[in-house]
Design a protein around this nucleic acid. Structure first.
Length: 928
RNA sequence: GGGCGAUUAGCUCAGGGGUAGAGCGCCACGUUGACAUCGUGGAGGUCGGUGGUUCGAAACCACCAUCGCCCACCA
C-alpha cells in the first residue's frame, strides 16, 4: 500500500468492477428491502442535495444488503415536462426556430434526441458517488411500459368519475402558455400600489369607492360587493353602478367575503380574473367577462381602446383614464403577494380555461388514514403534521398542461365535443361503440409531470402486470426525500399507491434537511454560491470554479461580488477530497430533518479520517503477513478492543435502525480513531515488537489486529464504500477470508466479538495510568521521548497485580522507565503526582520538574475539585434533595463527595510537600 | 393570519431532569519505523431571555426576542 491515501486512484476502478459484476442487483432470499430513488430530472445535474440524499439511500441500501436483505435501490429518471421542454425550446430559439415551426411530432422527436445525446448526465455522477443502484432496472417515466401505466391510471380514474374535465379558473402561465397546479405557483411579496377609484352610482346619486391592486381587471368587473352587516352601505345594496370606461351597469351586492375593515369596505368583483371573485360570482350568479387572452394581453371582451394591450400597459392606461375623469381618489404604496410560476418566473393569471382535474377527496381520505394509523411513518415524526395540514384542505388537482413533452392525455373528441377516454383511439371506439366514420381528435394536452411520478413506486415494478418485482418490492421499505416535495410527490404517491397497487407505497418516509452554504444560504446559481459535489470529489482550480459560478449568470451585475466571495473562500480552489470523505461528511451531518450548513472543515477532517484508516490498515497488514493458524492467546488488550468493537457494532445497528447516520458515523469514527488507532495499535506494539513475548500472545495480537480491522471495514462500508473495498481486498488475504467483494460480506454482528468487562476494567486502568503520566509530562514540559521512573503509593493488591501484569505496556506505551512500589513506611521523595483511584502515581522531581510549576498544576486541579465538592456538598446539605431525590442519586452524590474529599486530601498532602520542598530550596539559596 | 423549526465552545454541530460533548480552529511541546492528512498535553461555554414546574432545568412547560422555513383568497 502507498503511504498516503489517494482516493482518485481507487474509486472509479472499484465502481466499474461492482457494476460489471452485477453486485447491485438484489440477490438471495432474504426479506426484501427496497428504496426507489426520487427520479431526478432528465435535464438535471448532480447538486449537493442529490449527493446528500443519495449518500443516505446508498448507506441504507448497502447496510441492509450486507445484513442479508434482498436489497433493491431502484434507479430512474423523470421526463420533467416543463423543464425539458424549456431546454429544447431554448436550443431551437438559438437556431432561430420555435417549436411551432417544427410542429408537435418533430418537436417531440427533437426532445428525445436531446435526451439521448445530453440527458441524464446525473447517472454518471451517481456512479461517482458510489451509488449501488441496480442499473439493470433503470427506468424513465416516458418509457413505454411506464407510459402504459400512466394511461391505465388515467382511464381507470376517469371511468370511476375521479378525473373530470371542467371550465374554471386556473393558474395560467402566460409565458409558457400552460395551466399550472396550485403547488407550482409561488406567492412572493412585491412592492405595488393600492388604487382607490370612485364608481358612480347609476342613479346619479354620488359614488362609492373601491380599492384595488390590479386596476386593469376593472374592465371585467361584474359587481361591487359590501359586507351584509356593514351599515355604511346597506342602503346601496341592490342599486347599480355605472362602470367607468366600460359603460356597463353592474349591481352592488352583499357578501360575507368582504372584510369591512379593509380599504373602503367595497370590493370590485371580477369573477373571471380572481379566485375569490369567482366564488362570489358563483354565489350571485354574476356574468364572467374574460378580458385577457393567452398572453395576458387585453382581449376583445374589453372596450376597444384597451384591446391588445399588455396587462401592465393596460393597467397604466386604466389608471390614467380614470384619473382624467376625476375618478382616481388616491394611490397608496402597498405590498402585495404576486403569484409566479415556479419554472418560468412569470406572473401567473387566474384564467378561465378548460382543464382536466383529479377529484382528490376520495383519494386523500385513505391516504390520511394510512399515516394516522401508522401504516406509514414519517421520520422525524413531526412531518406527519405538515402532511395532515395539507391533506385536510387539499383541492382538486389540475393535471392538464398545454405542453408537447409529456404523457398525452388519452381522451378523444368527436365533432360534437363528446369526450371518449380509453387507452387508445381504437380502444375508445370499441369501448364507446363508435362507428369507424366518426372522426375523433385527440386532446392536445399532456399530463402534469407529477402525475407519472405519483405512480413511480409501482410503475417501475411493472404494474399493472403482477410481476415478480411488484410482488417482491412493493411496498417499498423507506422513501428518502426532502420536505419540499412532501406535497408534490410523497402525498400523491401514497394516494395513488393505495388506490392502484393495493397498499401503501412505503412503510417509512425519511425526511432530510436542505444543504445550505457555509452562511446558511440556500445554494443557488443566481447567488453564485453553488458547490458541485464532483468538485469536492475531484477538486477544482480557482479559475474553473470562478468560471462555473459566473457562467450564464442572469444578473450580470452580481458577477464581481460572486467572484470576490469565491476568491476569498477558495483562494486555491478546492482540493480533492474523494467520494468517501464527501459521503462521510453527509452522513455525519445527517441529523434528521434539520437543514445543513455545509462546512468544508468537516470534509477536510473526514478526508484525514480516511488517511488515518488507510495507515492503520498499513500497520495491520505489515504485522500480519503470512498469518498461519498457530494457537492464539488473547491478552487483555486484545479482549478489550474486541469488547469495544462489539459495543460499537451494537450501537451502529441501533443508529441505522433509527436513521441516525450521524450517530453511526460518529460511533465508527470514535472507535476507529480513539480506540483502535490511539490505543489498541499502540498496545499491540509492545507485544509484536518484543523478542520475549510468547508466540501465542503475538498470534493473539495479530489475529485481533486483522479481525478487528476486517470487521471495522465492513462496519464502515455502507458509508465509505470505496476505501473500505480497497483496503479489504488486502485485509481479506491476511484474515484468510473468502469472498470477492466487501459489498456482499455480512455486516458485523455484536456477537461476533464478545463483551468482556474484565478486560475493559483492566485496560481502563492501564489507560488511566498512562494518561496520568502523560499529563505530568505534557504540563511539565518533559520530553515525550524521555522515559520516566514512577513510584506507586497506596497500591492495593489489584493495583499491584495490574502493574505487574501490564508492566510492558506501561513501559512502552507510557514511556515508563521503572515502576517501584513504595513500602508502607517509606518516605516518598518530592514528586509530581497523578491520582488513579486510591493509588498515587509519583514521578520523582529530581532534575525533571519545576516545583513551582507542579504546584500551580496541582493547585488548578484542587480548585476544580473544590468547586465540584462545594456543589455536591450543597446538594447534600439540602434536606429536600436528600428526602425527594431517588435514593441512588443521593447515594451517588455521597460517593462523589467522598471521592472529591479523598482526592483533595491527596492533593493537599502533595502540595504541602511541595511547600516544604520549596522552603528548603529557598533556604539553600539564601545560604549560598 | 395560522403552523413548524432553530438559538449549546471562535466556527460547524451532537446531547439531554442530577458530572457540558465532538470535529475544525487556537496555544505549547514533539521527526517514538501505521499516519505531520500525525502524536501528546492544554485553554475555551452562567447551553438566547424571562417566568413557571421540580429537591434539582441547559434539557420539561409558558411567554418573549432573534433568525429561518411552510401554508393561507383580504381587494
Amino acid at each position: 500500500m502507498e503511504k498516503t491515501y489517494r482516493p482518485l486512484d481507487i474509486e472509479q476502478r472499484h465502481y466499474a468492477n461492482w457494476e460489471a459484476s452485477g453486485y447491485f442487483a438484489p440477490s438471495g432470499d432474504g426479506e426484501p428491502f427496497c428504496i426507489v430513488i426520487p427520479p431526478p430530472n432528465v435535464t438535471g445535474t448532480l447538486h449537493m442535495g442529490h449527493a446528500f440524499q443519495d449518500t443516505i439511500m446508498d448507506a441504507l441500501t448497502r447496510f441492509h444488503r450486507m445484513n442479508g436483505r434482498r436489497a433493491l435501490w431502484q434507479p430512474g429518471m423523470d421526463h420533467a415536462g416543463i423543464a425539458t421542454q424549456m431546454v429544447v425550446e431554448r436550443q431551437l430559439n438559438a437556431e432561430g426556430l420555435s417549436r411551432t415551426d417544427l410542429g408537435r411530432e418533430e418537436f417531440v422527436r427533437r426532445v428525445w434526441q436531446w435526451k439521448q445525446e445530453s440527458g441524464g448526465q446525473i447517472a454518471q455522477q451517481l456512479r461517482r458517488m458510489g451509488a449501488s443502484v441496480d442499473w439493470s432496472r433503470d427506468r424513465f417515466t416516458m418509457d413505454d411500459d411506464l407510459t402504459a401505466a400512466v394511461t391505465r391510471v388515467f382511464v381507470d380514474l376517469y371511468d370511476e368519475g375521479l378525473i373530470y374535465r371542467g371550465k374554471r379558473l386556473v393558474n395560467w402561465d402566460p409565458v409558457l402558455h400552460t395551466a399550472l397546479s396550485d403547488l407550482e405557483v409561488l406567492q412572493e411579496d412585491e412592492a405595488g400600489h393600492l388604487w382607490h377609484f370612485r364608481y358612480p352610482l347609476a342613479d346619479g346619486d354620488g359614488h362609492l369607492a373601491v380599492a384595488t391592486t390590479r386596476p386593469e381587471t376593472m374592465l371585467g368587473d361584474s359587481a361591487v360587493a359590501v359586507h351584509p352587516d356593514d351599515t355604511r352601505y346597506t342602503h346601496l345594496v341592490g342599486r347599480e353602478i355605472d362602470l367607468p370606461l366600460v359603460g356597463r351597469r353592474i349591481p352592488v351586492i352583499a357578501d360575507e367575503y368582504v372584510d369591512p375593515e379593509f380599504g373602503t369596505g367595497c370590493v370590485k368583483i371580477t369573477p373571471a380574473h380572481d379566485f375569490n371573485d369567482y366564488d362570489v360570482g358563483l354565489r350571485h350568479d354574476l356574468p364572467l367577462y374574460n378580458i385577457l387572452d393567452d398572453n395576458a394581453a387585453i382581449s376583445d371582451a374589453a372596450p376597444t381602446p384597451y384591446r391588445g394591450l399588455d396587462r401592465y400597459v393596460a393597467r397604466d392606461r386604466v389608471v390614467a383614464d380614470l384619473d382624467a375623469q376625476g375618478l382616481l381618489e388616491k394611490t397608496e404604496d402597498y405590498t402585495r403577494k404576486v403569484p409566479r410560476g415556479d419554472r418560468s418566473g412569470a406572473v401567473v393569471e387566474p384564467y378561465l380555461t378548460n382543464q382536466w382535474y383529479v377529484k382528490i377527496g376520495p383519494l386523500a381520505k385513505p391516504a390520511i388514514e394510512a399515516v394516522e394509523t401508522g401504516r406509514i411513518r414519517f421520520v422525524p415524526e413531526n412531518w406527519s403534521k405538515t402532511y395532515f395540514d395539507w391533506m385536510h384542505k387539499i383541492q382538486d388537482w389540475c393535471i392538464s398542461r398545454q405542453l408537447w413533452w409529456g404523457h398525452r392525455i388519452p381522451a378523444w373528441y368527436d365533432g360534437s365535443g363528446n369526450i371518449y377516454v380509453a387507452e387508445s383511439e381504437a380502444a375508445a371506439r370499441a369501448k364507446y361503440e363508435l362507428a369507424d366514420d366518426v372522426a375523433l381528435i385527440r386532446d392536445e394536452d399532456v399530463l402534469d409531470t407529477w402525475f407519472s411520478s405519483a405512480l413511480w413506486p409501482f410503475s417501475t415494478m411493472g404494474w399493472p402486470e403482477q410481476t415478480e418485482s411488484l410482488k417482491t418490492f412493493y411496498p417499498g421499505t423507506v422513501l428518502v426525500t426532502g420536505f419540499d416535495i412532501i406535497f408534490f410527490w410523497v402525498a400523491r404517491m401514497i394516494m395513488m399507491g393505495l388506490k392502484f397497487a393495493g397498499d401503501v407505497p412505503f412503510r417509512e418516509v425519511y425526511i432530510h434537511g436542505l444543504i445550505r452554504d457555509q452562511d446558511g444560504q440556500k445554494m443557488s446559481k443566481s447567488k453564485g454560491n453553488v458547490l458541485d459535489p464532483l468538485d469536492l470529489i475531484d477538486g477544482v482550480s480557482l479559475d474553473t470554479l470562478l468560471e462555473k459560478r459566473t457562467r450564464g449568470l442572469m444578473q450580470t451585475h452580481l458577477k464581481p461580488a460572486i467572484e470576490a466571495a469565491t476568491r476569498k473562500q477558495f483562494p486555491n480552489g478546492i482540493e480533492e477530497y474523494g467520494a468517501d470523505a464527501l459521503r462521510f461528511t453527509f452522513a455525519a451531518l445527517a441529523t434528521t430533518g434539520r437543514d445543513i450548513r455545509f462546512d468544508l472543515g468537516r470534509i477536510e477532517g473526514y478526508k484525514n479520517f480516511c488517511n488515518k484508516l488507510w495507515n492503520a490498515a498499513r500497520y495491520v497488514h505489515m504485522n500480519t503477513v503470512n498469518m498461519d493458524d498457530a494457537d492464539a492467546e488473547f491478552g487483555a488488550a486484545d479482549r478489550w478492543i474486541r469488547s469495544r468493537l462489539a459495543k460499537t457494532i451494537a450501537d451502529v445497528h441501533g443508529h441505522f435502525a433509527t436513521y441516525r447516520l450521524d450517530l453511526a458515523a460518529q460511533a465508527i469514527y470514535d472507535f476507529t480513531w480513539h480506540e483502535f488507532c490511539d490505543w489498541y495499535l499502540e498496545l499491540s506494539k509492545p507485544v509484536l515488537q518484543s523478542d520475549e513475548a510468547l508466540a501465542a500472545d503475538k498470534q493473539g495480537a495479530r489475529r485481533t489486529l486483522v479481525d478487528v480491522l476486517e470487521a471495522l471495514l465492513r462496519l464502515l462500508h455502507p458509508i465509505m464504500p470505496f476505501i473500505t473495498e480497497e483496503i479489504w481486498q488486502q485485509t481479506r488475504r491476511h484474515a484468510g477470508i473468502a469472498g470477492e467483494t466487501i459489498m456482499l460480506r455480512p455486516f458485523p454482528q455484536s456477537a461476533d466479538f464478545g463483551a468482556d468487562e474484565d478486560a475493559e476494567a483492566d485496560i481502563g486502568w492501564v489507560q488511566q495510568f498512562i494518561l496520568g503520566i502523560r499529563q505530568i509530562r505534557g504540563e511539565m514540559d518533559i520530553s515525550p521521548g524521555r522515559a520516566l521512573p514512577v513510584l506507586l503509593q497506596g497500591a492495593s493488591a489489584a493495583d499491584r497485580q495490574r502493574a505487574d501484569r501490564h508492566a510492558t505496556l506501561l513501559a512502552r506505551v507510557g514511556r515508563v522507565e521503572s515502576v517501584r512500589h513504595l513500602a508502607d513506611d517509606e518516605q516518598a521523595p518530592p514528586a509530581a503526582t497523578a491520582l488513579l483511584g486510591d493509588l498515587r502515581l509519583l514521578v520523582p522531581m529530581q532534575g525533571l520538574i519545576d516545583v513551582a510549576a507542579e504546584r500551580t498544576r496541582l493547585g488548578r486541579q484542587r480548585d476544580r475539585l473544590q468547586a465540584d465538592l462545594g456543589k455536591a456538598r450543597g446538594k447534600l446539605a439540602n434536606d429536600r434533595f436528600v428526602n425527594n431525590a431517588p435514593p441512588d442519586v443521593v447515594t451517588q452524590e455521597r460517593e462523589r463527595v467522598a471521592e472529591f474529599e479523598r482526592r483533595l486530601g491527596q492533593l493537599a498532602e502533595q502540595l504541602e510537600k511541595l511547600d516544604s520542598l520549596e522552603q528548603t530550596t529557598t533556604l539553600q539559596a539564601d545560604n549560598s
